[in-house]
Simulated assay, not measured.
Amino acid sequence: MKALRNMLLWLTSTLLLIGCQGEVQYATPLRPVHYPIYFGSAEGRALIPVGGYLRITRPSTAISAIGFGGILVIHGFAGSGMADYYYAYDLACPKELDPAVSLMVSDKLEAVCPKCHSHFSIVYGGGLPIQGPAQSPLLPYRVLPIDGGILITTPEL
């Protein structure tokens, strides 16, 4: 729980710094997101190891919402000596803007578009393009701690 609180503090600080430097422009359309993940479930256990990730392409319940192209959640890194951090992004490539073109995760833990072959950094929370024609970062989602897991929600951009 302490790790998740630290993650929220780091994420808030990062967003404030980005806000001070100018507004980030996201190409992916913003759609509602509401998706709980419990670490005791089969789905949630995939996120327990650092580097573990989950691609969510269908809502799990009638009240779940998965954004424009789905959700990519990863147990990432926050730098040396830091605890667990979870990051979430829309699965749609910001270059293709097609919810049917879903990002995959490479062996290097980069999100990769199967159509335009753009690569995005995902393990440190940026979602920035690092290779290929994409210019916009991945649309990030908010990750909140809940009892026994995390809740992925729509960001406040």
Rank of each mutant, 00 (worst) to 15 (best):
S41I: 10
S64M: 05
L128N: 01
V105D: 02
A83K: 04
G125Y: 00
D147M: 10
G51E: 12
V123H: 04
I71T: 12
M82Y: 03
T57I: 09
I71M: 05
D90P: 02
E110C: 11
A62S: 15
P129V: 00
F120E: 02
P49F: 13
L47P: 13
G67V: 11
R58C: 04
I122P: 01
V101E: 04
K115Y: 03
A62G: 08
G44W: 08
I146G: 05
G67T: 13
P145D: 14
F77Y: 08
V105Q: 01
S60M: 11
M82F: 03
I74S: 08
D107N: 13
G51C: 09
H117V: 02
Y53K: 13
L54P: 07
S118N: 07
C116T: 02
Q135W: 08
A78M: 11
K115G: 01
A100E: 06
G76A: 09
G44F: 09
I66N: 07
H119D: 12
S102H: 03
K108D: 15
Y86K: 04
G148L: 07
Y53H: 15
Y85A: 12
S106W: 11
G148Q: 12
K108Y: 13
A111V: 02
A88Q: 04
L91V: 01
L151S: 05
K108C: 06
L128Y: 00
D147I: 08
G127S: 07
Q131W: 08
G149I: 07
E110R: 15
S136K: 05
P59S: 11
D107L: 13
C93N: 01
L97F: 00
L128T: 00
P59D: 12
K95F: 03
G69L: 14
G69K: 10
H75M: 09
L103Y: 05
F68M: 05
I56W: 07
S121W: 01
L54S: 06
E43C: 06
Q135E: 15
I66D: 10
L109T: 09
Y86M: 09
G132D: 14
P137F: 05
S64V: 03
V123N: 03
I146C: 04
A83Y: 01
S121T: 04
L54F: 04
V143M: 07
G132S: 14
M104G: 09
P137T: 10
A46T: 15
K95P: 01
D90K: 03
D147V: 10
D90L: 06
G40H: 09
I74C: 10
C116F: 01
G126V: 00
D90Q: 08
V105W: 06
P137V: 09
T57K: 10
A46S: 14
K108L: 11
D147E: 15
V112Q: 07
I48W: 10
R45S: 14
K115V: 04
M104E: 11
G40S: 12
D98K: 05
I146D: 03
L138W: 02
P94F: 01
Y141T: 06
A111N: 02
R142Y: 08
I63R: 11
G40Y: 04
S60Q: 15
I63E: 14
Y53A: 14
L91C: 01
D84T: 11
G40C: 06
S118G: 10
G79W: 11
K95G: 02
D90E: 05
V101L: 05
F120D: 00
L47Q: 15
F77G: 06
D147K: 15
I63C: 06
A134M: 00
G132E: 08
I71P: 12
V73T: 08
Y141D: 06
V105H: 07
I74M: 11
L138R: 07
S41W: 13
F120L: 04
